[in-house]
Amino acid sequence: MEPLKKLLAGLLWLWMSAVIAGAFLYAPLARGFIGQSSRILFFHVPMAWVSFVAFIAAGIWSLRFLYGGRQPRHDRAAAAAVELGLTFGVLATVTGALWARVMWGAYWNWDPRQTSIVVALLFYGAYLALRSSLEDRDQRARLSAAYAVLGLVVAPFLFFIMPRIMFSLHPQSVINAQGKVEMEPRMVQVLLAGSAGATALFFWIHNLQCRLAALLERNSAPLE
């Protein structure tokens, strides 16, 4: 088992290196963007995507915890996913703000996308604050899982409904409202490869985090 894991980690390292090289050397510049600023896309979009995946995954693990037999491993998985989602979310926010400075002239202007990611970061920050203020393990798992599921309920309003009632300057998604891909094929290739790599990176770190949390929990468990 161990050599296979090492091989996979090595492959991921090669893959991500290729994505970084491709972002600068292979993909062309997008039209209508200042200077080289469109290249940040290949890092910003995968990070935003991974934080989205992480928060959805945390919600699903919380649902499985609440309605699937209250297994501690689902709780640990949800908590680790939230931590990683926050990390990637902060990175997506920072890369987005840097790009906004170049293109829009200001780091921050409460574009609907910026609003929704900040509210998401606040929500999952609150999730971690809740966890740290509950001492009993079962109680912590149960209450924080309920809060994460509430997040699943509120998220559509942030990501799908609010941007519609407010004006946004944010470039359209890869697949826009008309369902067409309006991007240079080479850009799409690098972007999809980057997103796939970042998703794999997320699940790899997530797996490590969960195993670490399980070990810590076993070590700190009171003697019975």
Binding site: L122, S133, E135, L150, F157, L158, M162, I165
Partner: peptide, 24 residues
Amino acid sequence: AQARSKGTLFSVMAFPVLLPLLLI
């Protein structure tokens, strides 16, 4: 209600939930 530091925690936890409502 079941956690410590209830007062501050309420604002921290409720506002992200209520923000979409507030904006609309």
